[in-house]
Design a protein around this nucleic acid. Structure first.
Lengths: 226, 226
DNA sequence: TACTATCGGATAGTTACACTGTCCATTCTG
DNA sequence: CAGAATGGACAGTGTAACTATCCGATAGTA
């Protein structure tokens, strides 16, 4: 297929596809003449993957390039590719150098029985979050993390099972990428749905106790319009 | 305090603080003269909150404005404020109008015993995720969602308990905001830590079975440097 | 073969966002 | 009282992600 069909089947404008080609997010098509190229299903799939990473995952073009590089590297183990993807997902890596927050983060990971890796991106991000919470006077937020870990543990096992169920290594690599990027988005959404539900139930219960009919009628009004 | 001290205590440059004032993210200081203003602890805290939303949460300035508006609205219930915050967190709301994906999303929420609210932002985001997974040929990804829901359910209860533990309504509102924005970031990090740990364990186990020493030595090399 | 639409490729331009810099009259500080 | 800092207005900057225009060269149709 030619570039126009690639565009039609994905909804991505032709100039944008050309831009991705320039940026190395898409491999060049097979040249049939000096200025005619043909694209295949691989390009189609890759283009969709790029859009998923950009739109759902919110990755920058540069981050997408890194992720795709890891995907295409036949040397990389699943475990390592996971690291590359996660590095691309997290934002800018600052180093606040807050002793107390660092110690709290360390205590947390060790309490979970996890290895303390102070220079990993994930650990730095954790310190960042704790610093932010502390600056805002929410020291008790840290206590929430243990609950998070309790929820995250089976999820991590599930993610791995899913990735290892892939028939080929390439498929497994892609699942790791999507499991991270789509998975984060999906979990955030599911969490919101769960919270909305729980919040609604509790509000109803509180209202029943107070016999407050007035509040009930506009309970879910703001999410019905549009 | 004056603007310079606000800047010093938060690390935010003075021109940026002026910009936030212009954009309505910070309330104006108390004017002591036609061109002198004084700022208090409220401004300091609000500025830190803005930075947290922007840097950790990745919100745009416009989204921050919306969130703060909900925070400052004394009429809003916790339940409603939650909706506003979540709307600010999600990206652009497209409408892919994919019948199959929509049906799958509906089946999922109803399987969870949740109310089917097809026009809520969360549901739309869910449809988006499913569409993306399907386009990429990962239909089985949808099966992962039930596991996500199992993990999200106690988390939602925990979030609510935490929010309702706040002494005042204003404090509860802020916890809702931070619980959403910081909470998403925190959970993503914790999930990564858990996955890294699980992946490492399995890789070790696999290596032990295969007695493959060569692979072991570079197992965690890529995360030790830098 | 003519003729028109489309192609690939290169280059330049646009838009949106989040700041950042400059100016000036006024006010604080030593 | 002198020199630094302030608030406020407004213009400028940098970056990221496209988007538009141009070109000569096919591709498809008649």
């Amino acid at each position: 297929m030619r570039i126009a069909e690639l565009s039609r089947r994905t909804g991505v404008p032709v100039p944008t596809i050309k831009y991705y080609l320039r940026e190395g997010l898409l491999p060049a098509g097979e040249l049939t003449s000096p200025n005619q190229a043909r694209y295949g299903e691989v390009h189609l799939h890759r283009l969709r993957l790029v859009r998923a990473l950009v739109e759902v995952g919110g990755l920058s073009i540069a981050a997408v390039r890194d992720v795709l590089g890891a995907l295409d590297d036949p040397e990389k183990s699943l475990h390592k590719a996971m690291g590359t993807v996660e590095r691309a997902v997290v934002g800018t890596g600052e180093s606040p150098t807050d002793e107390v927050a660092h110690a709290e983060a360390r205590a947390f990971v060790e309490r979970q029985g996890w290895t303390y890796r102070p220079h990993s991106d994930a650990f730095q991000s954790l310190v960042n979050v704790i610093v932010t919470a502390r600056e805002l006077g929410h020291e008790s937020f840290i206590a929430q993390l243990d609950g998070y870990a309790r929820a995250a543990r089976p999820l991590a096992e599930q993610d791995l099972d899913y990735a290892l169920s892939a028939p080929t290594k390439d498929a497994a690599m892609e699942i790791v990428v999507l499991g991270t990027v789509l998975g984060d988005a999906a979990f955030a959404v599911v969490r919101r749905l769960a919270r909305r539900e729980a919040s609604g139930l509790r509000q109803d219960r509180a209202q029943a106790e107070q016999d407050c009919d007035q509040a009930e009628q506009d309970c879910d009004r703001d999410e019905q319009d549009r």
